[in-house]
Simulated scan of single mutants.
Amino acid sequence: MLQELLFSLPQVLIDGLALGAIYAVVALGYTMVYGILQLINFAHGEIFMTGAFIGTGFFIMLMGMSWAAAIPQLLLFIIVILITASFTGLIGVGMERVAYRPLRGAPRLIPLITAIGISFILQDVIRFIAELTTGRYILTGPSLFSDQITISFSSISSWFNNASFKTSFLIVLITAILLMVALDYFVNRTKWGTAIRAVSLDRETASLMSINVNKVISTTFFVGSALGGATGVLFAMQYGTIDPYIGFILGLKAFIAAVLGGIGNIRGAMLGGILLGVMEMFAAANLSVLTGGIFGAEYKDVFAFAILIIVLIFRPEGLLGKPTAEKV
């Protein structure tokens, strides 16, 4: 059994890192909003999905133009990801202004139900627009960075199999790391980041210290939604096919990643996303071996939610989170 597990380990690590990086960046949106408003924004998965459709639409539009053929693929990718991040950031700001701000101070269940309602609205709006413009709601994006690279591990040891990946894997991983590092710098080294942390600690006191709380919250939604939209572009480029419902299950898993790392903790969300992606790919490749064929790769989602239950039972604050005391 051990040899079978090690044989697939290189490919598992590569696939897990790509998926985990996507989970990590989406989880950052959850953890930023929760850190300030104590709100689980379940519509964030649909922001990710919207970004995937906007990015794919721009890719298709630009690559259909003759002058775009002269643009290097990397530059085209940077242009699309910046445009998409800007659009989804503005959608996030509008969502906060219209749906969440009027409910600020209401019982927590009401904004939660509102977030679920917004997610259904976004799903149907994107499906309607996709069918209106293309005649179908399942889209396949253009093939970018599709060259295959193979790393020979079998020459090092017979215990390991070779691993292969598309060059898009490197783009996804590097871009996700840059986004996470940039966000960490923004939150911990800038004035806006200081304001965000101040509002997160005590909203009322921050407002007394001349911090514009509404502007800070809008900025948080913009940054979180922009990251979610950019990650949607990475997902569409890496996995090719998208539909209006990809945000639901991926959003739930990104939420699990945020809880695993410590909801409200930015670095915890990064760690939780990477760990969850690697563990999920490990389960997909080896669950049949570990259970003697009883469970197959289709049970990898069950594996992810089992991790959530275990974390909530034994360490509800997450890996990097800190226990908080309720004031009574």
Score class of each variant (00 low, 15 high):
residue 155 S to W: 07
residue 31 T to D: 14
residue 39 L to G: 10
residue 328 V to C: 10
residue 261 G to C: 10
residue 107 P to I: 09
residue 86 S to T: 14
residue 159 W to D: 15
residue 98 V to D: 14
residue 229 G to K: 01
residue 175 T to G: 09
residue 260 L to Q: 02
residue 50 T to F: 04
residue 119 S to N: 10
residue 117 G to A: 07
residue 223 V to N: 03
residue 233 V to S: 06
residue 136 R to W: 01
residue 70 A to W: 05
residue 297 A to Y: 11
residue 113 I to T: 15
residue 174 I to T: 03
residue 320 L to R: 15
residue 300 K to V: 06
residue 129 I to T: 15
residue 211 I to T: 15
residue 203 R to Y: 03
residue 172 V to N: 07
residue 114 T to I: 09
residue 29 G to Q: 13
residue 88 T to L: 08
residue 308 L to H: 04
residue 214 N to E: 03
residue 81 I to C: 02
residue 249 I to G: 04
residue 142 P to R: 08
residue 225 S to A: 09
residue 269 A to M: 08
residue 247 G to V: 10
residue 287 L to P: 13
residue 94 G to L: 14
residue 87 F to N: 06
residue 23 Y to W: 00
residue 259 V to S: 05
residue 28 L to E: 09
residue 50 T to S: 09
residue 86 S to V: 13
residue 24 A to S: 15
residue 226 A to E: 09
residue 267 R to E: 11
residue 86 S to P: 04
residue 180 M to G: 10
residue 223 V to R: 02
residue 53 F to I: 13
residue 277 G to Q: 03
residue 124 D to F: 13
residue 41 N to E: 03
residue 8 S to A: 06
residue 233 V to K: 02
residue 54 I to V: 15
residue 200 S to Q: 11
residue 207 S to C: 01
residue 42 F to H: 03
residue 188 N to K: 15
residue 240 G to H: 01
residue 133 T to Q: 08
